[in-house]
Simulated scan of single mutants.
Amino acid sequence: MTADLGNEKRALRAELRQRRRTRTTTERDTDTTALTATLQRFVEERQVRSLALYLSAPDEPDVRPFLRWAHEQGVRVLLPITREDGLLDWAVGDGVSEQQGLHGMPEVVGEVLSPLALGDVDAILTPAAAVGHDGCRMGWGRGYYDKTLGSMANRPPVYAVIFDAEYLDEVPREAHDEPVDGIITPSRIITFRS
Rank of each mutant, 00 (worst) to 15 (best):
G139S: 08
L79C: 10
G150C: 10
A11R: 13
A165V: 11
L113Y: 09
P156A: 13
I190S: 08
H133A: 10
A52C: 12
P80K: 10
E174Y: 07
Q40C: 08
I81Q: 13
R19T: 08
L55C: 04
D122W: 06
A70Q: 02
H71F: 08
A130P: 12
S56C: 02
E178V: 08
G101Y: 13
I124V: 15
S151Q: 13
G74I: 12
A175F: 11
V63P: 00
S56P: 00
P127L: 03
T22R: 12
Y54I: 07
D169C: 08
H133T: 01
F42N: 02
D85V: 14
V92Q: 09
L149R: 06
W90C: 04
F163I: 02
G6L: 15
R193A: 11
W140K: 11
G104Y: 07
L168P: 06
L35K: 00
D177K: 11
I184W: 00
A34N: 09
R155Q: 03
A57Q: 10
F66Y: 11
N7W: 07
L79E: 09
Q100D: 14
R142T: 02
R23Y: 04
R20K: 07
R41S: 15
L16I: 15
L149A: 07
W140I: 00
G95P: 10
V75S: 11
E170V: 03
T26C: 00
H103R: 14
G86C: 05
A52K: 06
F192T: 00
P115A: 01
G150E: 11
L78W: 13
D177H: 09
V180I: 10
S56V: 01
R83K: 13
E84F: 08
T22K: 05
I81C: 11
D85I: 12
T22S: 13
R76T: 15
T36H: 05
F66W: 12
F42V: 09
T36D: 02
V63S: 12
Y159H: 09
M138F: 03
R21H: 06
H103G: 04
Y159I: 01
V77C: 14
Q40A: 03
T25N: 11
H103P: 00
E8F: 01
V43D: 04
C136W: 07
G101F: 15
G86H: 07
V96N: 04
P156G: 08
E98F: 12
R155D: 09
W140N: 05
R188N: 13
G95H: 04
R19Q: 14
I124C: 04
P179L: 14
A160W: 01
Y144V: 05
H71L: 03
G119K: 10
P106A: 06
P157C: 12
P156L: 02
P115N: 07
Y54G: 05
D62G: 06
V180S: 01
W90K: 11
D29S: 13
R64Q: 14
L79I: 06
R41C: 08
T2I: 03
A70E: 05
E111G: 04
A70N: 02
V161R: 00
V43W: 01
V43A: 15
L67N: 04
Q73Y: 15
T25H: 02
V63H: 02
Y144S: 05
I162F: 08
S187Y: 09
V161W: 01
G119I: 06
I81A: 07
S194Q: 13
R23M: 10
W69Y: 12
R28E: 05
T33L: 14
